[in-house]
Design a protein around this nucleic acid. Structure first.
Length: 131
RNA sequence: UCAGAGGGCGGGGCGAUCGCUCGUCGGUAUUGCACCGGCGGGAGGAAAGUCCGGGCUCCGCAGGACAGGAUGGUCGAUAACGUCGACCGGCCGCGAGGCUAGGGAAAGUGCAACAGAGAGUAGACCGCCGAACGGUCCGCGCGGGAUUCGUCCCUGGCGGAUGCGUGGUGAGGGUGAAACGGUGCGGUAAGAGCGCACCAGCGAUCGGGGUGACUCGAUCGGCUCGGUAAACCCCAUCCGGAGCUAGACCAAACAGGGUGCAGAAGCGGUCCGCUUCGCGAUCGACACCCGGGUAGGUCGCAAUGGAGGCGACGAGCAAUCGUCGUGCACAGAUAAAUGGUCGCCACCAUCGACGUCGCCGGGCUCUGGUCCGGUGAAGCGUUCGAUCGGUACAGAACCCGGCUUACAAGCCCUCUGGUCGU
RNA sequence: GGGCGAUUAGCUCAGUUGGUUAGAGCGCUACGUUGACAUCGUAGAGGUCACAGAUUCGAAUUCUGUAUCGCCCA
C-alpha cells in the first residue's frame, strides 16, 4: 500500500465507533479543532492495526460548502501526515464551535492534538485501573 | 453621446504531483474481504428554498354528501400546475414598456377609529328662506260693545314687519380616505333630478364585430342605486392519505418451535436403583429444518432509461406540438466521492511607464503644420510591467416540469426618449 | 428527507372583530430620602413591531416572498 493513501480501512465508518470515541475516548482541543482518540482493539496487537480517522461536522458550522471545506482539509492533513499519528487508534475530529477554517492551522494542530488525546486517554485508564 | 426599457449568453482554462469514488480489464491473493496497476466517467444554473405540479411506491377505497384546503378575466398550451403564451379590462409612464388574487357587494351578515351636523334609504352646526302653522308688533278696514263723542275695549279678516317657537333646505362653509353625479337653463320663499338639454355612470332591449373575456352603435328606463370579500360568506373548478428513511428482498447472533427411524460408539445434568458398576428413561450439547425478523447487506438507484438535448421539415401570432435524423450528453456517494499543493495563462482592480488626445505657454515656419515644456483623479488604448491583490453564489442523495431566492467580472441583441454633428 | 412553530424596548413577555401617540415587569439614567448604602418615592430615556412587497382610507395585526432561530418524526 502507498504511504499516503487513504482508503476506507483508514476511516471510521460505523456509528458505534463514533459514539465510543466521543463518549469514552481521550479528548484534546485548541482554538480550532477538537480531537477524540480511542484504541481500536484493546486486546489485540496495536502496532499492526492502522490508525483511522473520522470527521464529524455539525450543521451549525455553516452551509454545505463550508462543512465540505472543513472535512476535506481535515482529511487531507491526516492523509499527508499520517505517519506522525500514534498507531492503533481511532481519531474522531470535530471543528471547535465558532472556529473559522484555515488550512495552515488545521495542518499544524491536528497531529499535536492527536498525541495529546492519546496521552490523556492513557492517564485516564491508569487512574481507573488503580481505583 | 447621455438617460432608460426588454431579452439572452456566461459561470475561468491548461499542466504537474499527492489523494478520493464508481465502472471495467489484468495481476497478487483466493471462501470472502482486501491490495496493486492500466483505461474510462465523476456537481449546478441555481444542485438551494421546499412554494406548487406530476411520475414512482405503499396503505385505504361501493357510490355520494358534509367539513377542510387551493385556485379565480377569457381562450389556448401541457402529463399536470398556483406554470407558460396570446388576447381583454383597469392603473402607471412623454415613450419603449411595466404592474395587475382581475368572479359576486341589485343573496345575506359585519366593519369604517379620530374628525365631523351627518358614515348608509345618513344628516340641520354655521349659513340661506319666511311658503305653511303659532306668537309678537305695526297699518287698514268690517262687526259688536262702552262713551265724557276726543276715543277706548273685544272678536275675527286683509296687508306688512320680525325670525321668537314649530318649520323648509341639502345649493354654500367646514370635517374626512370616503358625504348619494357634473355643467347650464328653467323653477322656487330659499332650494333640490323638482323639470329640461348635454355629458359621465348603471341597467334593459336591439343590431354589428369576436370562439370568448369584451367592444362599437342605436333606443328606452329609473334618475344615481358608495367602499371593503388578501372580513365572514356565495358561486364555479380542482383535491383520498402518506412519502425513496416510500417500498421489495437476503439474513448472522441471541431466544423460541420441530425432526434426528434401527443398531453401535460416546460427553454433561436429572430421574429410576440402598450405594458403586451396569442398564433404562429424559433433557442438553450436536446436526438439520421452520416462521418472525434485529445487527448488517442487496435491490429501488441510472441509460434495450427518461414529458432529455441538438438539427431539419411541417402546424401555430406564440407558448407548444407532430414527423424524421442524430453513439450529442447524462455523476451515483451512503460517517456520505468530485479535494490539497505548485506552475503557466486568461479576466478584473489598483499603481507606474509608453503612446494618443484635449488644454495652456514658448520657439520655428508663415499660417498647413511642426518641435519643446507644463498640465489632466472622475479622457482613451488589439502596448508593456508590477502586486504575499481579486475571480461570485454555492455542493447531487429517487427522477422530472415550473416558481422563488442568491450571484464576481465579462459579453451580445432589439427598442424608446433627449442632446450634439452631418 | 418530511412536518410544525416563533421573531414586539437591553432581558422576559402582553397586544384580535385592522383604528388615533404600541404597553407591563425587571434592568438603565437623573433627582429625592440616608452620615453612607440597600429599600422606597418621583421623573425620564430607550421601538425601522425581523426584512421586502401587496390589499386597505389606514397594517404589529390580513396576504405573498425572504432571513434567522427553535421543536417534532425517523
Amino acid at each position: 500500500m502507498k504511504p499516503n493513501a487513504f482508503p476506507k480501512s483508514k476511516r471510521v465508518v460505523s456509528g458505534r465507533s463514533f459514539t465510543l470515541a466521543l463518549r469514552k475516548g481521550g479528548c484534546a482541543a485548541d482554538g480550532c479543532l477538537v480531537v477524540f482518540a480511542f484504541p481500536r482493539d484493546p486486546g489485540g496487537d496495536r502496532s499492526c492495526q492502522p490508525r483511522r480517522l473520522g470527521v464529524t461536522i455539525p450543521k451549525k458550522t455553516g452551509s454545505a460548502v463550508v462543512r465540505n471545506r472543513w472535512k476535506r482539509w481535515i482529511r487531507e492533513s491526516f492523509r499527508t501526515q499520517q505517519a506522525a499519528f500514534p498507531v492503533g487508534f481511532d481519531f474522531v475530529v470535530r471543528p471547535k464551535k465558532d472556529a473559522r477554517a484555515s488550512w495552515q492551522s488545521i495542518q499544524r494542530s491536528l497531529p499535536k492534538l492527536a498525541h495529546k488525546a492519546v496521552r490523556r486517554l492513557n492517564g485516564q485508564s491508569v487512574q481507573t485501573r488503580t481505583r
